[in-house]
């Protein structure tokens, strides 16, 4: 059977190829579906606040970096199994996640989550049926509250659900919703008070990767000290003052 031979040779090549390992190539994992943190731009490349920041951090730490996109659901399992070395995907630092991976100090301050409903709705919309993306901290928050949680596979679906009346409001990160509210031409509006759920956003690294973490930690501290991090946040988040 020639196929068997082919398979065997592929396997052999896979197991024995040696090449010069440039030790300093860092693979940076992101989702690419969470504007303005990270998204795929019209050219089909990753873009956003975290991409610009990540590239700057790599430059300062003198690392060669490459971006990799991964589905949100499996973004942590793929980090611990070594498919990439860092996560920069708008990921809030939480105690649960911190047990499994390590975080650098935050590079984006804790952002309150906000409710968005159809324009004209009052605060009661936050108590009724509230949409959230599956497996987010917001979904867990609504589940524990008195409101009825409806979980959708994507952010897009949650917004669509509010528009067509399936849900009274949607709960998500303020920054991510702001873009959508601005673009809705007055059809959608923020409603009720925001809630603080997660911590700040940090870069996730493997627990066994202390050296890499220290390098990025230093670069983030340097960017906080010289004000360049504030400037970058202001650029991507409508002049927002982070105050680092």
């Amino acid at each position: 059977m020639t196929f068997t031979k082919l398979m065997a040779s592929i396997a052999l090549v896979a197991l024995t190829t040696t090449s010069v390992a440039a030790a300093d190539t860092v693979r940076m994992g992101t989702e690419g579906a969470y504007a303005p943190y990270n998204f795929i731009n019209d050219k089909g490349e990753v873009d956003g606040y975290e991409i610009e920041l990540g590239n700057e951090l790599c430059k300062r730490a003198e690392l060669e970096c490459k971006w990799v996109t991964n589905d949100w659901d499996s973004i942590i399992p793929n980090l611990v199994s070594g498919n990439y070395d860092t996560i920069m995907a708008g990921m809030s630092i939480t105690a649960e996640r911190d047990e499994v991976i390590d975080f650098t100090s935050e590079y984006f301050p804790a952002d309150p989550s906000s409710y968005v409903a159809l324009a004209g709705a009052d605060a009661s919309a936050t108590k009724g049926t509230v949409a959230a993306q599956t497996a987010t901290i917001q979904a867990a928050f609504i589940a524990a509250s008195d409101a009825t949680v409806v979980e959708f596979a994507t952010m897009e679906d949650t917004i669509a659900a509010v528009r067509n009346g399936e849900a009274d409001s949607v709960l998500a990160d303020h920054a991510a919703l702001k873009d959508i509210v601005d673009a809705s031409g007055g059809a959608l509006a923020f409603v009720g008070d925001g809630v603080s759920i997660g911590g700040g956003v940090g870069m996730g690294v493997r627990e066994s990767d202390g050296e890499l973490k220290a390098k990025f930690e230093a670069a983030i501290a340097a960017m906080k000290a010289d004000g360049s991090l504030n400037a970058m946040i202001a650029k991507w988040f409508d002049g927002r003052k982070a105050g680092y």
Binding site: S74, V149, V150
Partner: peptide, 19 residues
């Protein structure tokens, strides 16, 4: 696209919850 209400879902919903 069908959403899960009040965390009532099928087996894969809970499996992915645990994952």
């Amino acid at each position: 696209s069908f959403p899960a209400w009040r965390q009532k879902g099928d087996s894969l919903y809970y499996a992915s919850y645990f994952a």
